[in-house]
Amino acid sequence: MLKLSDILVERKDLESFEELVPVIQGIARRGERFFRMDVKPPYPDTPENWEDRLEAAFSGLIR
């Protein structure tokens, strides 16, 4: 299971929510099947609907 906290720890180079979205998409495309959003992304540009946006990115609704 992919956890958002693991990605944030591993990818310290990410500086914004907009940089995080394609990372989530790439992981999903490589075959990860489950995604848990266990923390809120710490970026100043994190939108209020961040959970919906990341879920859409993971499930392929955003291209």
Rank of each mutant, 00 (worst) to 15 (best):
G60E: 11
D6G: 05
D13E: 13
L8G: 02
V39Y: 04
P22I: 11
L4H: 04
G26C: 01
E51P: 00
P47W: 02
R36K: 12
P44D: 09
R53H: 06
R63V: 10
K12P: 00
F17D: 01
G60H: 13
E10D: 09
P47S: 02
V39P: 08
V9E: 13
K12R: 15
F35R: 06
R30I: 09
E15G: 12
E10H: 05
E19A: 14
Q25W: 02
P44N: 04
N49G: 05
S5R: 10
G31V: 00
Q25A: 08
T46V: 13
I7H: 04
F35Y: 07
V9D: 09
S5N: 10
I27C: 07
D13K: 03
I62V: 13
E19K: 15
R36F: 11
P42T: 07
K12H: 14
P41L: 04
E51V: 13
L8Q: 05
P22M: 11
E18Y: 05
P22D: 14
G31M: 01
T46L: 06
D45E: 04
I7G: 03
L4Y: 00
I62E: 13
L14M: 08
R29L: 14
L2K: 08
R33S: 14
S59L: 13
A56C: 10
F58I: 08
R63D: 13
S16M: 06
D13H: 01
R11F: 12
R53N: 06
E10W: 01
F34I: 12
P41H: 04
M1H: 05
M1P: 06
I24H: 02
Q25L: 06
P42E: 07
K12W: 12
A56S: 12
D6L: 11
R30T: 11
R53Q: 12
W50I: 11
D38A: 05
R36W: 10
E10G: 03
I62Y: 11
R11L: 10
R36E: 15
D52F: 12
E51H: 05
A28F: 08
P47C: 01
G26S: 09
D6I: 01
R33Y: 05
E18L: 10
E10S: 10
D13N: 07
L14S: 01
F17R: 00
E32M: 07
V9T: 08
D38S: 08
P41V: 09
D13S: 08
E10L: 10
E19W: 09
S16D: 03
L2S: 02
I7V: 15
D13V: 01
Q25M: 12
L14W: 00
I24K: 02
L61K: 15
R63A: 15
F58C: 02
P22A: 11
G31P: 00
W50C: 10
E32Y: 09
R11P: 03
V21T: 03
E10P: 00
P47H: 01
F17Q: 00
K12A: 15
P44E: 10
R53Y: 06
E32C: 03
F34G: 12
I7Q: 08
R53D: 08
I27D: 06
R33Q: 15
Y43I: 13
R36D: 13
N49I: 00
R11E: 10
G60V: 11
M1Q: 01
F34N: 15
A57Y: 03
R11M: 11
E32G: 03
L2T: 08
E51A: 13
A57R: 02
